[in-house]
Design a protein around this nucleic acid. Structure first.
Lengths: 327, 327
DNA sequence: GAAGTATTTGTAATCGATTACATTGTATGT
DNA sequence: ACATACAATGTAATCGATTACAAATACTTC
């Protein structure tokens, strides 16, 4: 391993000067600057990050804790985040909390131990409910999940509005009995539930709601159970997330129900498969790349300006009408 | 921040003793051990990882560099890897090389700088071709992609056999003109191509092959172009990966071709959507969870025993026959 | 109980950078 | 020509742990 002292010797300067060149702090003459950089290149020197971190207390690593890495929503968001980080030469420590508050706790502790510059997190409901900014020693940006009462930097969809518009669309298609399958474990799920309920209330209709675990398997089973228990099938089934939507489509298929003839189906997240099934599926699409990019930019801004006011950035969903809700 | 010296003072011992308790090296009496642990808990002490790393030169961070985080194959593999890492209290630094040798290089350099304990990598073709074990300062396990001539720890599918069996299945369905769309940029794609070709050769048939970029969009376009250029549609189209398969299905749909009536379709990777389209899709499934778990275990074994012989672990794919290749 | 060994604990060096402070050299204004 | 300010560089302290080595204590064995 070549150390900074090797570079200093090679360039005929002190270690302090080498460090100044590398860090970009302090003043160095252009001549020595070039000499040092030449030596760095000649010796293929790479600073020891642990040493640098220990002394300076700074890191250029960001943390990203998502709820489910297999959920395409999160992979697309992470992808966008990582692209920005890559462009800036920063690292991203990606972890998967699996909707488990214990894992989430573990990873947050790990972020503290790693001394990351900041963290982007899609919090469990449990964390969100007891959220206090002062519990975190690093800048934190919430993504996907945040409510109005939580004082934090956040990037979220306008869930209530999005669910309301999606539901209104189904009402326009003359659906009356609309069953809403939602992930009860997340803030997102309950906000979308509220939007759905608001739309039904406008129309003077009563709600049919079914909380599920936010997985495809659980959603499929919940639909099955529902269909078996009730004689009358609903006019429409709606999912509060892409994974749940997939479960609903699987479940309909399993029960031999065709859409849109027997029952209309729609849900959140414009996942790739929604375009290729026949008929294709009406969805409320989220701007995942935008959400990711905005989240990391918000985080970097916060790191640069720790004092600035908290910002909650609310994005609008896009309704994409397809065959599954054809008139 | 509480430091190790605070803990030492609180417990009435020296910092060395505290360190020994925490690291688990050296001998400490049970009594002091408990006293130290009590102090650690009382003060909520967490060791500074940078300092620990600097002094010991060791890390319990692993690196994982995948080719495309949006590919469900890789998310499932990462998921399995991370589960094992979590169970052992290790961190995983996940990066997305995007099939780009430059990014791959960048992230490999970063892994070196981070001083990770080891890395799991799905290499680009370019890296694989010039692979030399001595170029890496850390233990490395290849996943998904490796060839017989590369001397490295690796976990891969038996690609030739898998593609051959998938192709034979189509031959049994009386397909004669079988078009193979494969990712030319990866070792996996060309190995699967070889398997396909072997099966056709057995049957005395000529191959129809189409290299594509390993993305859904590119596959869809390639299929379109192919269909427009050739009067006669093939009996079957086969994809060398799940993302390509999705593109083929989209393309068929776009051209109004039904399967299995007009053309049979099949491919690699049992992705969730393959079960819900109608008809559902015949696939060669990969044991992704097994692959991930095996890869990290192989890596940990290598870290523990740096001297042991290189192992290439070859997994068998599972043919799942579904409606898209119905007789 | 003495000698020898094993166990437990402490002292201080060390990892490789950053950075406060001191020092030297150079330019500027009067 | 002298004082002042500022730029460029070097010396050495420092970050917070681990660990080599030394010292103290406990435990055997005869």
């Amino acid at each position: 391993m070549t150390r900074i002292s090797d570079v200093a010797k090679h360039a005929g300067v002190s270690v302090a000067t080498v460090s100044r060149v590398l860090v970009g702090q302090g003043s160095v003459s252009e001549a020595t600057r070039e000499r040092v950089l030449a030596s760095v290149k000649a010796l293929d020197y790479h600073p020891d990050l642990a040493a640098r971190r220990l002394r300076s207390g700074k890191t250029d690593t960001l943390g990203l804790i998502v709820s489910d890495i297999r959920n395409p929503y999160f992979t697309e968001v992470s992808r966008a985040i990582e692209d920005v980080a890559y462009a800036r030469g920063m690292r991203v420590l990606l972890c998967n909390a699996d909707e488990d508050p214990a894992k989430e706790r573990f990873y947050l502790d790990m972020m503290r131990d790693e001394n990351v510059a900041g963290v982007i997190l899609s919090p469990t409901l449990s964390l969100l409910n007891q959220y206090r900014a002062e519990d975190f020693s690093f800048p934190l940006v919430l993504v996907d999940r945040c409510d109005a009462k939580t004082e934090a930097d956040a990037v979220v969809l306008d869930n209530i509005d999005a669910a309301q518009r999606l539901t209104r669309h189904l009402l326009e298609r003359n659906c009356r009995r609309i069953a809403f399958f939602y992930g009860a474990a997340s803030a997102t799920g309950s906000q979308r539930l509220a939007g759905y309920q608001a739309a039904l209330a406008e129309a003077g209709l009563s709600a049919i709601t079914q909380p599920v675990k936010p997985t495809t398997d659980d959603a499929r089973q919940a639909l099955s159970t529902y269909l078996e228990r009730h004689r009358q099938t609903p006019d429409a089934v709606v999912a509060s997330s892409g994974l749940i939507l997939l479960g609903l489509v699987e479940g309909l298929r399993q029960h031999g129900l065709r859409y849109p003839q027997d029952v209309i189906v729609a849900g959140f997240d414009d996942m790739p498969w929604t375009r290729i099934v026949t008929p294709d599926i009406t969805v409320m699409a989220q701007p995942t790349a935008d959400i990711g990019r905005t989240a990391i930019e918000l985080l970097l801004a916060r790191i640069a300006q720790p004092g600035q006011a908290m910002r909650r950035i609310v994005m609008r969903g896009e309704l994409i009408v397809r065959g599954s809700s054809a008139a």
